[in-house]
Amino acid sequence: MSLRPERQAPPEIFYNESEARKYTTSSRIIEIQAKLTERALELLALPSDGIPRLLLDIGCGSGLSGETLTENGHHWIGMDISESMIDIALEREVDGDLLVSDIGQGLGFRPGSLDGAISISAVQWLCNADKSCNDPRARLKAFFSSLYKCLARGARAILQIYPENTQQLEMISTAAMRVGFSGGLVVDYPHSSRAKKYFLCLSCGPPSTSTPLPKAKGEDGGSESEDDSEDEENETVDVAERQRPAKRLKNGKKVKGRAWLLKKKEQRRNKGVTNVPRDTKYTGRKRKTRF
């Protein structure tokens, strides 16, 4: 079974030239990073006065997330530990300023200097102790306490993360709350194991009752169709990026039955999809293994 990237090597090693190259060539990765960034910006809830803000992109990588910030008119500073990823960002001629920096060593910015921060698919890397000198808890603490300091009062940080399990999720959120952040977790598409996305939404300063935590997407089964499309996209990125084990076909047993399939097909027809195959007596039957 393939391991999550976080378990294979430290980020500066994993994100080598060839891995970084994927970020310029895979349209799926590009699209997903852009989508996640749009969502993070939405959750960042900056004033809608059209004034560009100065934002931080934590684990900016090849600058895909940053490009979305630029498209939305903002200035940004991106930091990443992988020089190969930064090189790709330079190649793409992104508009943000870039820094080679390890967020686990803390962020070196003046207090209150930034209007907000986003991070797309990076912070879970801090949970790995890939060198003897790396203590995940100490690194999370250094990261969050410095992040808290460098944000302007009332500013927010939106961190989209891929935690490996609930312990990791808790370790990250606890570290954030401990340094004084308020806020919490927004889980988009919570009912879909693949489309599910975690956004840790943090505010600098005391919790305010006037700004409740934003609502998650796809919480009610109602937007299931959207779930599906997300599913497909993620599946492909997952393969390239996360290498999930193929759960569905474990020892050739189908996890989802005929009834489920018929329902899904019906839903797609109702949505106006025209190329849904007819329902026949073969629908949902196990295929013979042929060689």
Binding site: I86, L90, L99, V100, D102
Partner: peptide, 8 residues
Amino acid sequence: KGVPNMLL
């Protein structure tokens, strides 16, 4: 190349 290396 325009990028400060701030690694400690």
